[in-house]
Amino acid sequence: MEVFGLVGPLYRRVQRKIEQDAPEQDLSVGVRAVLDLLREHGPMTVPQMGQAQSLSRQFVQRMVNDAAARGFTETIPNPAHQRSSLIRLTDAGLAAITAVTAREHALLRRVGGGLTDAEVTACVRVLSRMLELFDDVEVTGTPPR
């Protein structure tokens, strides 16, 4: 539980700092998450993004709408399901998420304490395993089936 006690505030502070340092981009945490997910995985449906991020479909849809209004994403036909379009990054969206992540990486490289690559790798491994432990948690609040 100590890890969760540190990760939550750390995540929120890092996101606030990045938003403060990049007012020209004016990316909310939600839009940033959508852009990052699409950059990493390619075109996805809103329900797929919600599931991948453990967020409600309605929240993800609002973030996708915000991103689309700014020209960062676009809707394309989904060959697998006509009623659920795919969302993909535009060139502007790719440029925006690339710039934001470059700033994030530069900021986080300033972490001191002489951390080794092995320590960072171990930390990522621990957090990944903790995330896997809660893979069955439903976002909607309904019990898993």
Rank of each mutant, 00 (worst) to 15 (best):
A106N: 12
D117Q: 09
R16Q: 15
T90R: 03
A95D: 11
A96H: 04
R88K: 14
R88M: 13
R145Y: 02
T116D: 00
S84W: 08
Q58P: 00
R57H: 12
P43K: 10
K17V: 08
A96L: 05
T45M: 07
M63L: 00
G5Q: 05
Q25W: 10
M130D: 03
Q58E: 13
M130N: 12
V34T: 03
P79A: 10
E132Q: 12
G112F: 01
Q20C: 07
L10W: 09
A33Y: 01
H41D: 12
D36I: 07
G5W: 02
A92T: 13
A22Y: 00
P143Y: 05
G93D: 01
L35W: 03
E74M: 07
G93I: 04
Q58C: 04
L35N: 13
Q25V: 06
T98L: 08
R13M: 09
T75V: 09
Q48G: 14
M49S: 12
S85K: 08
M130K: 15
D117P: 05
A118R: 15
C123V: 07
E119W: 00
R103Q: 14
L55G: 00
Q20H: 04
P143S: 12
G30Y: 04
P43F: 05
L133A: 15
D135F: 04
N78D: 15
H41A: 08
M63R: 12
R39L: 00
I87H: 07
R57K: 05
L37M: 13
S85Y: 00
A69I: 10
L35M: 05
L131T: 14
T140M: 07
D136A: 13
D91V: 07
V100R: 14
M1H: 11
R110D: 14
A80Q: 11
G5P: 02
C123S: 14
R110P: 01
I18D: 06
L37S: 13
K17I: 08
T73D: 04
P43T: 03
D21H: 02
A92R: 09
M130H: 04
E74W: 01
G114H: 03
G8L: 14
G5F: 06
M130G: 13
T121N: 14
T73A: 13
F134E: 05
A22Q: 09
T90M: 12
L89M: 02
A99C: 03
A33P: 04
S56M: 08
R109G: 09
A68Q: 10
A102R: 15
H105S: 06
C123K: 09
R12L: 15
Q15C: 04
D66I: 09
L6K: 08
T121A: 15
D26Y: 03
F4T: 10
L55V: 10
L108Y: 06
P47I: 10
E119N: 08
G114P: 06
G112W: 02
G113N: 14
R12Y: 04
A80G: 11
L89D: 02
R32C: 05
V29P: 02
G141D: 07
R83A: 14
L89H: 02
R13P: 00
N78Y: 07
V139W: 03
A102Y: 00
L94D: 11
H105G: 14
L115C: 07
G8Y: 05
M63H: 10
L94E: 15
L133Y: 08
P143W: 08
P77R: 10
P9E: 11
L38I: 09
A80E: 12
R109H: 09
D36G: 12
